[in-house]
Amino acid sequence: MGVRSFEHVGVIVQDLEKVAAFFELLGFHRGDTATVGGEWADRVNGLTGTRVEMVFMTTPDGSGALELSRFIEPVNQDAPTSLPSDTLGLRHIAYRVDGVEELIERVRAAGYDLVRELVNYEDIWLVCYVRGPEGLIVELGERLS
């Protein structure tokens, strides 16, 4: 017995609506917003007085989700940062896309930009990192062959 399948990645955010709108811009489907908390959440999170507003964002093919969560309680005073790509820890998430150049235009029109540039990797992929709200990095890749 062990890992069976991928379920979701949890992303803690300050501005739930702004971050959810960014992922909708990329093509994710938004679920219903819910507020959770209580003793069970305290036990899972190792916190006291947990109350969280959250929404699941899923890919069109249903291959996994992002759980966007904003902690109402306890309050964390840390400000989001735009860490460099080589900072230790979970640094980016990657998605296969269609029409990456058009998607980049939409991203830029919404006020976001690439970390650096769109690259043709060996005529197999067009790939880039997009810097989203709160310093989040999303890798977008379009398969060429």
Results as ranks from 00 to 15, higher is better:
10 G>V: 15
10 G>Q: 15
10 G>M: 15
10 G>K: 14
10 G>L: 15
10 G>H: 13
11 V>T: 14
11 V>Q: 14
12 I>R: 15
12 I>W: 08
13 V>L: 13
14 Q>D: 14
15 D>R: 15
15 D>P: 12
15 D>C: 13
16 L>Q: 15
16 L>C: 15
17 E>T: 14
17 E>F: 12
17 E>K: 15
18 K>T: 14
18 K>N: 10
18 K>Y: 04
19 V>S: 09
19 V>F: 11
20 A>Y: 11
20 A>K: 13
20 A>I: 10
21 A>I: 11
21 A>T: 14
22 F>E: 10
22 F>P: 04
22 F>T: 10
22 F>K: 10
22 F>G: 10
23 F>D: 09
23 F>I: 08
23 F>Q: 09
23 F>M: 10
24 E>R: 15
24 E>M: 11
25 L>I: 05
26 L>I: 06
27 G>C: 08
28 F>G: 02
28 F>E: 04
28 F>T: 03
29 H>Q: 12
29 H>C: 07
29 H>E: 13
29 H>G: 12
30 R>F: 05
30 R>K: 15
30 R>M: 13
30 R>N: 08
30 R>E: 13
31 G>P: 07
31 G>K: 08
31 G>A: 08
32 D>L: 12
32 D>T: 08
32 D>P: 07
34 A>Y: 05
34 A>I: 11
35 T>L: 04
35 T>I: 14
35 T>P: 01
35 T>A: 04
36 V>N: 07
37 G>W: 01
37 G>F: 01
39 E>Y: 01
39 E>Q: 13
39 E>G: 08
41 A>K: 07
42 D>N: 13
42 D>W: 05
43 R>M: 05
43 R>D: 08
43 R>A: 11
44 V>Y: 06
44 V>N: 03
45 N>M: 14
45 N>P: 00
46 G>S: 01
46 G>E: 01
46 G>M: 02
47 L>K: 02
47 L>P: 00
48 T>I: 02
49 G>C: 04
50 T>F: 01
51 R>M: 05
52 V>T: 06
52 V>P: 02
53 E>S: 09
54 M>G: 07
54 M>A: 11
55 V>K: 03
56 F>E: 00
56 F>A: 00
57 M>R: 08
57 M>S: 07
57 M>K: 06
57 M>N: 06
58 T>S: 14
59 T>H: 01
59 T>K: 05
59 T>C: 08
59 T>N: 01
60 P>R: 00
61 D>N: 14
61 D>T: 14
62 G>K: 07
62 G>C: 09
62 G>V: 09
62 G>L: 09
63 S>F: 07
64 G>R: 05
64 G>S: 06
64 G>T: 06
65 A>H: 10
65 A>K: 14
65 A>L: 04
66 L>H: 01
66 L>K: 01
67 E>Q: 12
67 E>W: 02
68 L>N: 10
68 L>A: 10
68 L>K: 09
70 R>M: 10
71 F>S: 05
71 F>C: 06
71 F>V: 03
71 F>A: 05
